[in-house]
């Protein structure tokens, strides 16, 4: 056993134990760690926003290089603060309108391209998938899965007869998908847990190498 002489390792180890203490129920140690996390995260975000956005995107170009066009986003950003004045609180809608419109405009072609066209391309059977028997068979399995899943979510007609049969196949695919995603997520959390245990046993206590 070789205890770490690093003060920060001790801080990290104690905070890790504080959070783990939640497994025995809510307690003051966990609450302390939770509030510390919130405070440090917000403080960190303040610094990151200043150094990564305010300074390089606004302060330096506007006041250093005289890019006066940036007065427009500055005014739009300041409009957010109008929410603190009851009489002018409606002004906050102006930057929100710009950001929402911008985001929606960006999203439409990007979503269509990434989540529709690219996904259809990936589901199609091409000459490349015919190269090997296994890629060909799995491509057909994927294609059937995509079509049946989409049909399961088709609610414009009552699902009976052949439509119900196809939708039921879709349910099987969806259940496999949810199960696999769940298993994957659990393993990711287990991986984090092992990481923390490794930190405690190796970096802090020095009982493993």
């Amino acid at each position: 056993m070789h205890l770490s002489p690093d003060l920060w390792v001790w801080v990290g180890a104690l905070l890790t134990l504080f959070v783990f203490s939640f497994l025995f129920g809510d307690n003051p140690f966990y609450k302390f760690a939770e509030h510390l996390y919130v405070g440090v995260s917000v403080g960190y975000m303040i610094a990151i926003y200043y150094w990564n956005f305010f300074k390089p995107d606004l302060i330096e170009p506007l006041f250093g290089r005289g890019e006066l066009i940036l007065i427009v986003p500055l005014i739009l950003g300041l409009c957010y603060l109008a929410i603190f004045i009851q009489k002018f609180s409606w002004v906050v809608r102006i930057p929100m309108g710009f950001v929402l419109g911008w985001g929606s405009g960006i999203a439409i072609p990007a979503v269509l391209q990434a989540n529709v066209i690219k996904q259809i391309q990936g589901s199609l059977i091409t000459s490349q998938t015919l190269a090997h028997w296994n890629t060909f068979v799995w491509s057909i399995v994927v294609l059937i899965g995509v079509i049946t899943t989409v049909i399961y979510f088709f609610f414009s007609r009552e699902q009976k007869g052949s439509l119900k049969v196809v939708a039921n196949i879709g349910i099987i695919y969806i259940m496999i998908g949810f199960g696999a995603s769940f298993g994957y997520t659990v393993m990711a959390r287990i991986s984090l847990l092992l990481g923390r245990l490794q930190f405690l046993l190796r970096d802090w206590l020095g009982v493993i190498h």
Partner: peptide, 21 residues
């Protein structure tokens, strides 16, 4: 993960994409 799960995710993604648009 690569075959049936991806197929289901693609089907769901289509719905999400159309809803987003």
């Amino acid at each position: 993960l690569n075959v049936p799960s991806m197929a289901a995710k693609r089907g769901i993604l289509f719905g999400i994409a159309l809803g987003s648009v």
